[in-house]
Computed example of a mutant assay.
Amino acid sequence: MPFDLDRFLADCSDAAEAGHPRALREVVARAVADPEALMARLGEPQRAGVTKLLHRPGLTVLNLAWGPGMTIMPHNHRMEAVIGLYSGREDNIYWRRIETEDGPRIEAAGAKSLGARECVPMGRDIIHSVTNPLNKLTGAIHVYLGDFFAAERSEWEPETLTEQPYDVVKNVGLFEAANRRLAQA
């Protein structure tokens, strides 16, 4: 059965408006359950990057492609989210805030590896880092219960694990660097 993008986005909107993150997870899980149909509609990932499928104040739906070996440092979203993979693999490390003699930091608190057809909800306070451990692109649908692009977020410096404002330009650059490596391969 073909993937109906309009129906998927309408279902995401209905779940978001009803305030039901669990229902949103079910919508995303249904979408990634048939990766071939999803890719027939959206296309197979060719480049690392982020494509907006829907963007409004209460809901953002993205088609995201992680480059081979790409890593995004620890960051938060400050909104609930559901992540579903339709190709490749995404390794998440979850972090928690701690107080140290040198001030606030984060420390690893768990991990979850996702593959195609898998889906995970993320609470509004989750801090995570993401790595594509494969030598190929990873495709994922990311649904955020909020305006992903307007939210003030934080990221944590990878070496010191200290909090700083999320740097959109730096993170877009990580996707472009992954594309340069992909072109050289």
Rank of each mutant, 00 (worst) to 15 (best):
I72M: 09
I98N: 11
F149P: 03
G84T: 10
V120G: 00
P68H: 05
R105E: 15
F149I: 09
Y144R: 02
G115E: 12
E152H: 08
S87T: 15
H142R: 02
R117N: 12
A65C: 13
H75D: 03
E107F: 03
A151H: 08
E107S: 04
E155A: 09
N132R: 01
L114A: 05
M79K: 05
R105Y: 09
R117W: 08
T131C: 08
I127G: 14
M122V: 07
A116M: 04
R97A: 15
R117Y: 03
G123V: 07
G88W: 06
L114I: 04
D91K: 00
V143I: 02
P74Q: 05
A108I: 01
D102I: 03
I141Y: 00
L145G: 11
T131I: 02
D125P: 04
A81K: 14
V130L: 09
S154C: 05
Y86K: 07
E118D: 14
W156E: 01
G146P: 09
R78C: 10
L134G: 09
W95R: 02
H142D: 14
Y144N: 05
T131P: 06
T71P: 00
R96N: 11
W66L: 11
L114Q: 03
I106L: 03
G69Y: 01
E118N: 14
I127E: 13
E107G: 02
L137H: 13
R78Q: 15
F149L: 10
H142L: 03
A109I: 06
K136D: 13
M79E: 14
S129C: 13
M70P: 03
S154M: 12
A116K: 02
V82A: 08
N76Y: 05
T100V: 11
R89V: 15
W66I: 00
E152N: 04
R124S: 11
I126L: 15
S129F: 06
E101S: 10
N135W: 09
Y144C: 04
A150H: 07
E152D: 12
I98F: 12
V82R: 04
A151N: 06
G103C: 11
I141E: 00
A151Y: 05
E157K: 12
E118G: 06
T71L: 01
E157C: 09
R153D: 13
M73T: 15
I83G: 03
A140L: 07
Y86Q: 07
T138I: 04
D147S: 09
N132Y: 05
R117Q: 15
H75I: 05
M70D: 08
I98G: 09
I83S: 11
R105D: 13
C119N: 03
Y94I: 00
T100S: 13
E90K: 00
E101H: 08
R117E: 15
D91P: 00
V120M: 05
E80V: 10
S129V: 06
E118I: 14
P104G: 06
H142Q: 02
R153F: 13
I126A: 14
T131S: 09
I83E: 12
T138C: 14
M73Y: 05
L137W: 11
I72F: 15
Y144T: 07
